[in-house]
Amino acid sequence: MSAVETQEVEKRYGPVRALRDVSFSVPEGTVTLVAGPNGAGKSTLLRILACLTRPTSGLIRILGRDPFRKDGPALRSELGWLGPEPGLYADLTVEENLAFVARLHGSDSGRVESVLEELGLAAMRHRRARTLSQGYRRRTGLARALLHQPRILLLDEPWNGLDEEASERLTKVLQRHRARGGTVLVAAHAVPAARELADQVLRLEQGVLRMLPGGPREETHG
């Protein structure tokens, strides 16, 4: 089964067509890189898949179901999202932010401990998000996205603001997620680690999918 499938998805912001007839599918247990220049529509595509915004037209299937119909609430627990902002409450501590997300998703409180360890955040657990460096905020945002063990991770430029050690840690986290059968869609440009990791690449240019998924680790023209 495809983890994600889109058919002729279009998104308009007034007269601007951010996405045009975007159709693709992503198999489960793979990493897909969404590449393209600035303004190509990468973030819009990921926001639609994360149920943060609706497409103007077209069909979306997440794990075979429509996320914008009655299956939406159940499907949202299968999605982990990290956008350009970390998705944190600035005046809650790292641990409180994660505990809040655990309560939202009904996750075991032990998960907070394990993601703190996994992302090297244990020493920062009592720091308010406001006082963290950009890199630690990104890490905490990633921990938040991973906390409820989603089957599909949607990450928008996750390597931004990370140092070398954190970048390697992120790459390992994504590899482990794939190894456990999870799916990753990651928007990034000019990140060698993303290219290394990707099983397939979707290239967007001015809202149009120029390249379609091909074989492992290669870009093919549609």
Binding site: C51, L52, P73, W81, E85, G87, Y89, A90, V101, L104
Partner: peptide
């Protein structure tokens, strides 16, 4: 402001409920 400052509104939007 609290919800928009660090993009936290997305966390609420992704809550798995009505």
């Amino acid at each position: 402001q609290t919800e928009t400052e660090e993009g936290a509104l997305a966390v609420l939007t992704l809550a798995p409920c009505d």
